[in-house]
């Protein structure tokens, strides 16, 4: 069950959103672990200003209730079919409205969360994670896709 976080974007409660207006969701920046060493787990927090992944979404207006849900990989795909385990922990996602008064709200990207847009109609969502290369992990580049789905409730 999604966990409602009605105060996540704090303070100002505005008018109800027109349900027919468009919802915009954009991927802004990749979650980039950079070089990682064989046998050494590497984490990126959602607050990392360079390496964390970033999404942006805009709802029809203040007061809109939305659900955020990720589709997360469990492996990054590398050379010759090699796979690199990736995991996401309890506070590896962070959402914050674009208004100056908005406070960051941390959540577990493995589950859905529900927010009400109360300080701004738009917000950014950052995501971190952890990769765990084996001691004999094949060297090379690994990648996979992270999808965020925003639903107006």
């Amino acid at each position: 069950m999604p966990r409602p976080l009605p105060l996540a974007f704090a303070a100002l409660v505005g008018s109800a959103a027109p349900c027919s207006a468009q919802l915009l969701v954009q991927g802004i920046r990749d979650l980039d672990f950079g070089p990682v060493i064989q046998g050494i787990a590497t984490s990126v927090p959602p607050t990392d200003p360079i390496r964390s992944g970033q999404f942006y979404f805009r709802t029809p207006g203040l007061g809109t209730r939305i659900r955020i849900q990720f589709t997360l990989p469990t492996r990054l795909n590398g050379p010759a079919g090699a796979r690199l385990p990736i995991s996401f922990g309890a506070n590896d996602a962070m959402a914050r409205g674009t208004a100056p008064a908005s406070a960051p709200a941390f959540f577990n990207p493995n589950g859905a969360v529900v927010y009400q847009m109360v300080t701004s109609p738009d917000a950014n969502v950052w995501i971190g994670g952890r990769v765990t290369p084996a001691a004999n992990q094949a060297v090379g580049s690994y990648t996979n896709t992270i999808v965020i789905t925003v639903t107006i409730l």
Partner: peptide, 22 residues
């Protein structure tokens, strides 16, 4: 029609480059 319009997705990549220990 309403449900389709009220749900949208965005995509990014997760990336890492595995290196040998120095």
């Amino acid at each position: 029609a309403g449900a389709l319009e009220a749900q949208t997705s965005g995509t990014i990549n997760a990336r890492a480059v595995v290196r040998q220990p120095i």
